[in-house]
Write a protein that binds this DNA or RNA. Structure first.
Lengths: 355, 355
DNA sequence: GTGAAAGCGCTAACAA
DNA sequence: TTGTTAGCGCTTTCAC
């Protein structure tokens, strides 16, 4: 009845070899004669032995686990990223330890500390903001890390993020081409650098085309404040011809508000969203959006991290990944302009413009 | 320059105490005089010491980590669950190791094995199907575990799932009350027991009201097959008055198809979805849906697991959590029936019916 | 190619 | 209350 977990010694005894040999069979660190190896494997199989990774890591000083810290586990942007990282890391035999900060700097530091307490081979961090108050802890622990999505201006390490400038340019161009002049750019918050970059790029593009700079509105993080703040644009005479939403939340906020005011998309107003989730193509009308390459970002994050794990002295790399405009039906020329090309693409599958 | 990670010995030396005392300061296992404790903490602070959880777990034989295995990390249903589990476990000082199976039984077994190789205190599993091919491995490892969402009929351990029967009844009643007779129930797959339970309950409710049993359609897992299979219901004369979608994917599939055929919701047909995500209230029209209590499921999963960790002999518990119907605007009486009450709730916030 | 033995960082048992 | 010592399961010398 005392079914204690079998250890390497049990296997060694059963196979009639030393513990070291069993270790070598499983780690492949040093060659073992095929016959012995077979005996070891059979013995292990019989008693259900599996090497203890914690013990192995302790002795070898080499970890097979990486930490992943994100602001939210309920935001599909972050979880898709995690999925990609997990897949890439698993291929190389690494497991992931996941923690979420809730978006607060204090809990971020705390969660990172417990992550580091596992002595992971490295950590992937999506910071909760543009400051890195935990930077000192990270350096002291001397652990490889890469930043994803939110990267401070002066950050000098490895990082992966979307090319916000290019993304903003694409979004702005699309609306300009459709003939929009009265555009409102909708952000959740301007605290984040990547959002500010998108804004700046959009504004620049509009100005370069001799258009007025778009208005800018900050929604906050609750649905209530969001719909409230958007309300000022809902009156007929104040209404823009297009909303350009810079995050998933902003997109949702805009849609909910238009919904509440019975304003039709794209007949009354166009909507261009950021991030691209499956619901966006299922709803009515399907949403035109700037798609961030989430899978690619996750893969790159692991690539940079594993490179850093292998070579601590390698030159820092910052990857800027291109976004794509996915044209669907929520954007059209402003009413009163030339006939809606939206109709033309109605039955067509996603039309994707490369960055 | 040789900034090796500080160990308990370094702290002990610096504070002028033994390693055992340092351990006691951090673990709280045995009392330490305040002055000594202060010295220890200060020394630890100075050199940036943090106990190594892997080493601690190895020696103490008590793990502070739990494994979480889900089919997909891109599905918000599972990640919301993970978020809730992580929050609950973190409160008790447990970290989570996350792995995804991709929905395949083989990789499920493999991922579970690497999870178990960390000798976690327990594991939470959302199985990829209704069989538990990994059950033997789990038993042999003698590790506490709870099943979530997908629970085999004859499973005798701890488990948490939605009350599918009640959920199905609520969904059916809602449509019946609105006057629908021609209903199509839309599933992604009938392989899963919880889906079959929902179907059975819906059918039973319809029959009990003297109505015809609804038609049933299986969508598969790709958008293409989904829209294809739904096409047969899109012709005017074949069209039902309501679709009842049993999963997030089914809901999306139905919406995309209606979208493609230019069929209006709820004027031409009503749509009732399962699962409730923020996009559902932002789209046009906002979706009526059966909301599964994801946070509660996650909390309960941790509650059951920690109970089991504390007492291996406790009687198994199976939690069945109530779902709620969230009335929005995608459901209305079939066209030709009494005036649409949908208009009445137009400006109202979510109206929620308790199970 | 294999075995014996030391030791990774920590905690638990035993002394003092 | 504190120090000393042994040892968790593993990998890695160092012999042979």
């Amino acid at each position: 009845m005392s079914q204690s977990v079998p250890s390497i010694k049990d296997v060694a005894r059963l196979a009639g070899v030393s513990a070291g040999t069993v270790s070598n069979v499983f780690s492949g660190n040093r060659p073992v004669t095929p016959e012995l190896a077979a005996k070891v494997r059979e013995a292990a199989q019989r008693i259900g032995y599996q090497p203890d990774r914690a013990a192995s890591q302790l002795r070898a000083g080499k970890a097979r686990v990486i930490g992943v810290l994100v602001p939210e586990l309920t935001n599909p942007f972050f979880t898709s990223l995690i999925a990609a990282i997990e897949a890439a890391a698993a291929e190389d035999g690494f497991d992931i330890l996941v923690a979420s900060s809730g978006g607060y700097a204090e809990s971020e530091a705390a969660r990172l500390a417990t992550l580091l307490a596992w002595k992971p081979a490295g950590v992937v961090i999506v910071p909760s903001g543009d400051e890195l108050p935990f930077r000192a802890a990270l350096d002291r622990a001397n652990v490889p890390f890469v930043l994803v999505d939110r990267v401070p201006e002066d950050f000098d390490g490895d990082a992966v993020q979307a090319d916000n400038e290019e993304a903003g340019r694409q979004a702005a161009r699309h609306l300009i081409e459709l003939g929009h002049r009265e555009v409102v750019v909708v952000a959740s918050s301007l605290k984040l650098r990547n959002i500010r970059e998108r804004c700046a790029s959009i504004e620049k593009t509009f100005l370069a085309q001799g258009r007025r700079a778009p208005a800018l509105i900050e929604l906050g993080f609750s649905f209530e404040t969001a719909t409230e703040r958007l309300a000022i644009f809902m009156r007929q005479d104040e209404r823009p011809t297009a909303f350009l939403a810079l995050t998933n939340f902003a997109t949702l906020g805009v849609l909910a508000t238009l919904q509440k005011w019975d304003i039709e998309v794209p007949d009354d107003v166009s909507v261009l969203g950021f991030d691209d989730y499956s619901w966006m193509q299922a709803v009515s009308p399907p949403l035109t959006a700037i798609r961030q390459p989430l899978e690619e970002m996750g893969r790159q994050a692991w690539r940079l991290l594993s490179r850093r794990i292998a070579d601590r002295a390698a030159a820092p790399m910052q990857a800027r990944l291109a976004c794509r405009l996915v044209r669907r039906r929520s954007t059209a020329p402003p009413s009163g302009e030339k006939g809606s090309p939206a109709d033309a693409t109605r039955e067509a599958p996603d039309e994707v413009s490369r960055a």
